[in-house]
Design a protein around this nucleic acid. Structure first.
Lengths: 162, 162
DNA sequence: ACATATCAATTCGAATTTGAACAATCAGGG
DNA sequence: CCCTGATTGTTCAAATTCGAATTGATATGT
């Protein structure tokens, strides 16, 4: 029916910029965390999420959702983190199927050690590259995009067509 | 020496938003291209880059740089695309070491077929989620970040410290 | 011409990711 | 109580990624 409109020049710049920034940023963060504390970015994210809860624990599925990975992907990462002693598994008392991932003391320390370098890098490459107003605008824009991507969106594609 | 400043609330929102948008967007695009035309996103990017040249060909290293992947990663993808008949390799006449990746007619058609759906998706999830001014601001901000990430940057981290 | 450093592309192994299939369990309605 | 359908986490195979090492070839300086 409708031929999709090509992207305008600005639109193209925005999209390309997004792809480039995503790609390069991701690699930089990955390298830094790895050489700094031996963590992958996904693993770092897991530790962050766990440490943000009162008990330092979260159900596998919740955690998978939080860090935007597949369930099988999380299973793998938790296994890795368990080997490293940064996280342990705990059976859920009320649901035999369930499993908690629990942050260990060592995990807390690893996160504590890794965080400063990580934050510095994010600052250096991302935040400090921009003027404060730009940061604010980015925050708004990217959150809006995120909402649409998540589906919690007031108007996924305009008012219902018919 | 210097304790890195924690991220402020906006800074956090911007960074988190960036991570979330990157992650979700990437998966959506991947799925769409795959189910639509059987291409991965990296493969699509390769085709785009090749089609943008006059002769539809590019040296392996140049192409790797253009699509922001490692040389070995590109070798792999070109092999895949060659199997699919969308690209072929051509030895460089002036440098025995060199190889060109050349877009085939079939490759051109595949790109032509895949492009509309891809553009629609990008529009739907990214561009159309935002007001035109937001798109323009995003373009500027992300390009700035990209420059810093690439290293072509007027002030990587302030004036030389000593 | 020659030694040395750089470069192009590939190969290799290790790590990681995803979706599908699976096994076990839970929840709700009749 | 029991049946059906959803949920939980894991396992598995396939695909992909990266970096280090490799093989040749090219460029540079003397």
């Amino acid at each position: 029916m409708d031929e999709p409109r090509r992207l305008s020049q600005v639109e193209m710049r925005a999209w390309q910029g997004f792809l480039v920034a995503s790609s390069l940023m991701s690699r930089r963060v990955e390298q830094q965390l790895k050489s700094d504390e031996g963590l992958s970015h996904p693993q770092y994210e897991v530790l962050v999420r766990l440490s943000a809860t009162p008990d330092g624990e979260l159900r596998m599925t919740e955690l998978a959702d939080a860090v935007l990975t597949s369930k099988s992907g999380l299973t793998y990462q938790i296994t890795q983190l368990e080997k490293a002693g940064l996280v342990r598994r705990r059976d859920c008392p009320t649901d035999v199927r369930g499993t908690f991932a629990v942050l260990t003391e060592e995990g807390r320390r690893a996160l504590h050690d890794a965080a400063p370098g990580h934050v510095s890098l994010v600052r250096e490459l991302f935040i400090d590259a921009l003027a404060p107003e730009q940061v604010a605008l980015l925050a708004d824009a990217l959150e809006t995009v995120g909402q649409r991507l998540r589906g919690d969106d007031p108007s996924p594609s305009g008012p219902p067509a018919r």
